[in-house]
Design a protein around this nucleic acid. Structure first.
Lengths: 135, 135
DNA sequence: GGTTGACATGGAGTTGACTCCAGATTCTAA
DNA sequence: TTAGAATCTGGAGTCAACTCCATGTCAACC
């Protein structure tokens, strides 16, 4: 179990941010050591790290919250779904599918930008190379 | 030439955002029709669209501004560099290289997230398929 | 010739995501 | 036992990036 300070260091999030995420309900309140101090588990830490990955794909905190609530199983795809009814499964599927589509669009845009950037870099590098071999 | 309203529709940016970008110096002031009304060219529109692509790669407006100023050649890689001195070329090269590295990291993170999401989707779809074939 | 609609300006307000602060509590080391 | 460090709470402040507002100009249509 980690203190809030250790958790901040492990995840790269600030102490304030950890408390903020808890306040807005993005993370569940962690256990309290001695009934007072927040105490984060290994799993909590992994979860916080995966949150940052999701964030990088451009989701807002509110979207992430909705995403995680709807698909509780994000952490564990083998979450007991058999008890869920068909509609719930379909809803989760469509949320994931939409999110995937957005990520794919972003992926394609990134790829094209990277390609352009590489070409420009090449032009510069050639220029520098030519300069270097001048008399 | 397009009015600010038409430009907003074409680019997906709001009228206020177009004026805001101009105010902070991210875009150059467009020609004024009848000395009063902003009038955007095809090229202005293309530029605005490419700004949005850059933005999606996670650059802030300030970074984008610096990026575009430093490497004026972003729009045209064959910009007359011969007149520039070696240091300027090196500076542009390193800005582009750093930006490329960031994009590559983001690209890898996205790929891994997409992979995970696809796996989860697969699990759900199988569940739905099984349900469908039940007695 | 009056109303409508698009656009202008300067400045204020909003939103999301933190970040900081004051004052209190508790444990730890000198 | 007192000073320091880490944490607590509730609430205020900040920053980027818009977004809205009041008021004014102009051209066009009825």
């Amino acid at each position: 179990m980690y203190s809030i300070g250790q958790t901040a260091k492990l995840t790269g999030l600030s102490i304030d941010t950890l408390r903020y995420y808890e306040k807005i309900g993005l993370t569940k309140p962690p256990v309290r050591a001695k009934g007072r101090l927040r105490s984060y588990s290994e799993e909590d830490v992994r979860f916080l790290i995966s949150l940052q990955c999701l964030k990088k794909t451009g989701l807002t905190l509110v979207e992430m919250k909705a995403f995680l609530m709807e698909g509780q199983c994000y952490a564990n795809p083998y979450f007991p779904l058999s008890a869920e009814d068909r509609e719930t499964i379909e809803s989760r599927t469509s949320i994931l599918a939409e999110h995937l589509a957005r990520m794919e669009a972003q992926y394609a845009a990134l790829a094209s930008l990277m390609e352009q950037t590489k070409e420009k870099l090449e032009v510069y590098r050639e220029l520098l190379a030519k300069e270097a071999t001048k008399p």
